[in-house]
Structures are given as C-alpha cells and as structure tokens.
C-alpha cells in the first residue's frame, strides 16, 4: 500500500471495497440461514460469534482503513473491546 498521507490524489480502491462488501453480505445471509437450522446451541452460538468477529474485523480493516493507518489506531480500537469482554465475563459470572 502506497503511503497515503491524506493529501493529493490517490488511486481508487473501489475493487477492494466491492469485494469486502460482497463478503460481508454473504456472511450475513449465511448467518440468517444458519439461524433457521436447529443444531446444537453451543456450536451455533460459537459460529455466530466467530462470523460476527470476522465481519467486524473486515469493516475495521478495510472500511475504516485500519490496515493502512498507524497500528496505534488498531490498538485503541481493539484494547477497549478486550476490556469489555473481561468486564462482561465478570459481571455475568457474579
């Protein structure tokens, strides 16, 4: 990826955005389909969690340009998310 300090023209990335959008749409459709099946609850929940994390990662990396910007932004975004998981675990467990 070329250095894209936000000044001056840069070439277009429409192709990547289209691919990412299609993948996201496909995952969502698959989730709705998966929801209609009746399979073991734990596996279904596990699958849903993984799929939503993939979707979140895709949007974060491509749509929010986290993969081109400085890693500090990714740290600022992922850090609180992990903290939330820890907080939710202890709140629900008590």
């Amino acid at each position: 990826m070329e250095n894209n300090i936000a000044s001056g023209k840069t070439e277009s990335h429409v192709r990547t955005y289209v691919y990412v959008f299609l993948i996201l749409a496909a995952i969502t459709a698959f989730e709705i389909y998966l929801n209609s099946l009746t399979i073991v609850q734990e596996i279904q929940n596990g699958l849903f969690l993984i799929l939503s994390l993939i979707k979140a990662a895709l949007i974060g990396a491509f749509f929010m340009h986290l993969h081109t910007d400085s890693k500090f932004f990714t740290f600022i975004f992922v850090g609180p998310a992990l903290l939330f998981i820890m907080f939710a675990f202890f709140t629900i467990a008590s």
């Binding site: 975004f77 609180p80 998310a81 903290l83 939330f84 907080f87 939710a88 709140t91 629900i92």
Partner: peptide, 11 residues
C-alpha cells in the same frame, strides 16, 4: 470510549 459505553449496555 463509545466501545466502553456500548460495552456497558451489552453487558
């Protein structure tokens, strides 16, 4: 900070 705000609601 918004992540933590929604985190509280989701928890």
């Amino acid at each position: 900070s918004e992540v933590m705000f929604f985190g509280g609601l989701i928890a």
